[in-house]
Simulated assay, not measured.
Amino acid sequence: MSIIEKARAKQQQKNLETSVKEAQYSLEKESIKEPIYASPKHELPLDKIGLAERGYLIDNGTRKSIKDEFRKIKRILLNNAFGKAAKTLHHSNLIMVSSAKPNEGKTFVAINLALSIALEQDKTVLLVDADVLRPSVMRELGIEEQLGMIDYLLGKTEHVSDIIYNTDINKLKLIPAGKLHHLSNELLASEKMATLANELANRYPDRIVIFDCPPLIGVTETLVLANLMGQAVIVVEESKTSIVDIQAATEHLNENLALGLVLNKAIRSHKDLYGYYGYGYGYGTKN
Rank of each mutant, 00 (worst) to 15 (best):
R63L: 15
I143E: 06
H90G: 10
G178T: 03
E191R: 05
D151C: 13
K33F: 06
L119D: 15
L172V: 10
L113G: 02
Y276P: 00
C213M: 15
S99L: 15
L153R: 02
N227L: 00
P215D: 09
L133R: 12
G280D: 03
I267F: 02
E140Y: 13
Y165V: 10
R75W: 10
R63P: 15
Y279M: 09
V219I: 01
Y165Q: 12
L141I: 13
K192Y: 01
A85K: 12
P215I: 13
S269Q: 02
L57W: 02
L200R: 08
L228Q: 11
N80G: 13
K173F: 07
L46K: 12
S239Q: 05
L126M: 04
P40S: 14
L115W: 00
R139S: 08
L46M: 10
Q12C: 01
E120S: 08
I95D: 04
N80I: 01
Y277S: 12
S65T: 10
L228S: 10
Y276D: 01
T124V: 08
Q13P: 05
K6V: 11
A258T: 04
P215Y: 08
G284S: 08
I117G: 03
A114D: 01
D212R: 05
S99T: 14
T62V: 13
Y37Q: 04
E237K: 09
L257H: 07
A248H: 11
R139W: 01
E28D: 08
E158K: 07
E186K: 08
R71Y: 10
E237Y: 03
S239H: 04
P176I: 07
V109A: 03
S65K: 06
Y25A: 15
M1T: 13
A226E: 05
I36M: 01
R203E: 14
N93Q: 08
D122P: 12
K101Y: 05
L216W: 02
K179E: 10
A226V: 14
